[in-house]
């Protein structure tokens, strides 16, 4: 376990924080969860860096998908789930396309995000999309300007979706409620206010 430093100077305690990797600080189950959700054998990563070299987010941020893979293998759950970089993957799948180990690093990242969400760690925009779909069936719903444009084109104001047929909405809400997604989204957003 990392050495706890109860120095009375909080700043110094943080500056001198024990940086060693101790096996008891890691969660060996974490990689298994990642593999189950992401359906990819993430533990087979051999750290070649093809993923980071392919990543459009890496050159403009500290996001390193290879390091997420490494940390997942080492079970550094806390470090992963609290890292704001986790949400910088654009899911372009270039890494997955090129990974010589035939892994899907993108899906491993998605799995880690799923695990973060289970601990209420999630950016607000993701939850707002959930709320919109719960309400309208669409992540990007219709609006008046668009309705006018649609009519101009000879289209109906509302597309042939849940917008025109709101009777389909209860079914959608039932699915979301099954996973308590709306409830959790509302709660997390409210807590964040």
């Amino acid at each position: 376990m990392a050495v706890k430093k109860d120095y009375k100077d909080q700043k110094l305690a943080e500056k001198l924080r024990d940086r060693k990797y101790y096996i008891p600080d890691s969660n060996p189950e974490f990689i298994k969860d990642v593999e189950k959700i992401g359906q990819t054998a993430a533990h087979m990563c051999y750290q070649c860096g093809t993923c980071t070299g392919s990543c459009p987010s890496a050159p403009r941020s500290s996001y390193r998908i290879r390091l997420f893979m490494r940390k997942a293998i080492l079970g550094l759950e806390e470090e992963i789930l609290t890292d704001p970089d986790l949400w910088l993957c654009t899911t372009c799948y270039s890494c997955t396309d090129r990974c010589p180990r035939d892994l899907a690093p993108t899906d491993a990242i998605m799995a880690m995000r799923n695990l973060a969400f289970k601990r209420d760690i999630v950016p607000r925009n993701f939850l707002q999309t959930v709320q919109l779909i719960y309400k309208t069936g669409h992540g990007v719903p219709n609006n008046d300007a668009n309705r006018a444009a649609r009519k101009r084109l000879g289209l109906e104001a509302e597309p042939e979706t849940t917008h025109k047929y709101p009777e389909y909405l209860p079914g959608i809400r039932r699915i979301l409620d099954h996973y308590r997604l709306k409830e959790n989204a509302d709660r997390i957003l409210a807590e964040g206010e």
Partner: peptide, 11 residues
């Protein structure tokens, strides 16, 4: 008829 958001794969 009655289709919804796909739903957004990222979100």
């Amino acid at each position: 008829k009655g289709a919804s958001c796909c739903p957004a794969p990222g979100a």
